[in-house]
Design a protein around this nucleic acid. Sequence first.
DNA 1: CTAAATGCTCACATCGATGTCATGGGCAAG
DNA 2: CTTGCCCATGACATCGATGTGAGCATTTAG
Lengths: 123, 123
Amino acid sequence: MRIGELSARTGASRRSLRYYEQQGLLVSTRSPSGQRCYNDDHVQRVALIQTFLAAGMSSMSIAQMVPCMSEPTRAKALHALTVMNHERTRLTSMIDRLTAAREALDRLIEVNRSFLANATDAD
Amino acid sequence: MRIGELSARTGASRRSLRYYEQQGLLVSTRSPSGQRCYNDDHVQRVALIQTFLAAGMSSMSIAQMVPCMSEPTRAKALHALTVMNHERTRLTSMIDRLTAAREALDRLIEVNRSFLANATDAD
DNA sequence: CTAAATGCTCACATCGATGTCATGGGCAAG
DNA sequence: CTTGCCCATGACATCGATGTGAGCATTTAG
């Protein structure tokens, strides 16, 4: 399939797909005229990329983790593992931050509700 | 206290503190010569702002939620409640996204480990 | 009093994923 | 062949929190 179809299937814009390739996240074969050709595996790959990007990972980290480039080397795999552990830590601490923020928000909501309850008649 | 001390106590840069004020997140009194004056309450306020910013909220949302500006009105409180619920939903879905990414990452880590285990001698 | 430290405002720079526009080529149906 | 749609590349724009530096004023320590 060409880029338009991959875009339709994944929800990623053509622009984004080209960007992923430029960043080394995605590899495509080219038709004789230079158009990008994809197969079903690429749909999965893009889904994974989207999952990671949506979690705030940088394209550079993803490029180092996802085994998209040619053949995996032992050295590359070791490096990937380092990055993966690093990212996992980052994800976990981000989850903690978000959870803390949500708790703080809940407290604020409560305060706000109380204010509204008391001010219903006044004001 | 002046801005340097507040910065030291909260870890927010002076630049950030001025920015928070500019965005309406923080209110300061001024000395006759124009320098910003803060008290202990401001330390708490900045901590809350940091919590929310670290969770990826925009300063505009925070400005609408945090009751920092003058006296709270009933209308303002109602609006704040709307924003708060909106933000809470966003936080929750972001937590879900991060969790999903972490699970995908864990699978990737497992694949990587297997590869390394099998390739230990080869390569 | 003087020098160092701190503060003020204003303005410009940064990062990263993506939108958008321009210009030009490729391909299928009439 | 031509019309219409898809694709390619490249360049510039965007958003938001923060860094940074200039130029000038104020506060504080010696």
